[in-house]
Structures are given as C-alpha cells and as structure tokens.
Amino acid sequence: MLNDIKIDTAHANDFARVAVAGESRWVEWGAKFFNSLTRSKMRWFDAGEIEGAVVWARYL
C-alpha cells in the first residue's frame, strides 16, 4: 500500500479525475482524504460500480 501512495502522490496532479473502487469504507475515507491533497477530483465507488467509475473518470 505504501508504494501505491508514493505513486499517487508522484502523479497527484496529472489527472483531472480519479475514480477509486473498493469494498471497504476505509477506501472511501482514503479517497476523501487524498482528494484534499490534489487538484484532481477524486471519488469513491463501491466495487460493484466499476463501470460507473470508469464513465465518471472519463467525463470531462
């Protein structure tokens, strides 16, 4: 997980939108926390909503 955070922070402002999908509420909390650290808009989606997450991330 630490490597994921390093990658996320290295590219924090390279994307307009970042969709995060997962089953745990801590993933939702993490997305909200990292959203405040970047210019990217970040949103959490439930694991069953991956298609919606992709659509949201691609929409500008």
Rank of each mutant, 00 (worst) to 15 (best):
D46L: 07
G30E: 11
I5S: 08
R39V: 15
L60S: 09
A16C: 12
N13W: 03
T9M: 13
G52R: 04
D14C: 07
R58C: 08
M1S: 14
N3E: 10
L60H: 14
G52E: 10
A10E: 15
T38N: 05
A19V: 00
F15W: 01
H11C: 03
G22I: 00
W29T: 14
A10C: 02
N35A: 04
Y59L: 09
M1Y: 10
I7A: 15
L60I: 09
M1E: 13
V54D: 01
T9I: 11
L37F: 15
A12G: 11
E51R: 06
R25C: 09
D46I: 08
D8P: 13
E51H: 00
K41T: 10
Y59R: 00
V18P: 05
R43C: 04
G52S: 01
V55L: 12
E49K: 05
G52D: 06
A31E: 05
S24H: 07
V18S: 06
R43V: 04
I50N: 00
R43D: 02
E49A: 05
A53R: 06
G52V: 03
G48F: 01
A47L: 06
K6C: 13
A21C: 01
N3A: 15
L37T: 02
R39F: 14
V55T: 06
V55H: 03
V55K: 13
D8L: 13
R58H: 05
A31R: 04
E28R: 04
K41S: 15
F45P: 03
T38E: 05
E49P: 05
W44S: 00
A10T: 08
A57Y: 00
A16V: 04
I5A: 10
G22K: 03
L37H: 00
W56N: 01
A57F: 00
S36Q: 11
L60V: 15
F34T: 13
D4I: 11
K32V: 07
A12N: 12
L60P: 15
N3I: 12
D4Q: 11
T38V: 10
K41L: 09
R58F: 05
F33G: 12
F15R: 03
R43T: 01
W44F: 07
G52Y: 08
S36V: 06
T38W: 12
R25F: 08
N35D: 05
E49Y: 07
G30K: 14
A53L: 01
N13P: 03
R17C: 03
R25E: 14
N35Y: 07
V18H: 01
G30P: 12
L60M: 10
W26M: 12
M1R: 10
W56G: 01
E28C: 07
K41E: 09
E51S: 02
H11K: 14
F33L: 09
K6W: 13
A16T: 14
N3V: 13
D14Q: 05
D8C: 15
A12R: 11
F45T: 02
W29V: 12
A16N: 08
D46Q: 01
T38F: 08
D14K: 02
L60G: 15
M1I: 08
W56Y: 04
F15S: 00
E28N: 02
R17K: 14
A53V: 07
E28L: 03
G30M: 12
V55R: 07
N13L: 02
L37Y: 12
H11P: 07
I5E: 15
I50S: 05
F45M: 02
A47S: 13
V20F: 06
I50E: 08
F45V: 02
N35S: 05
K32W: 14
W26P: 11
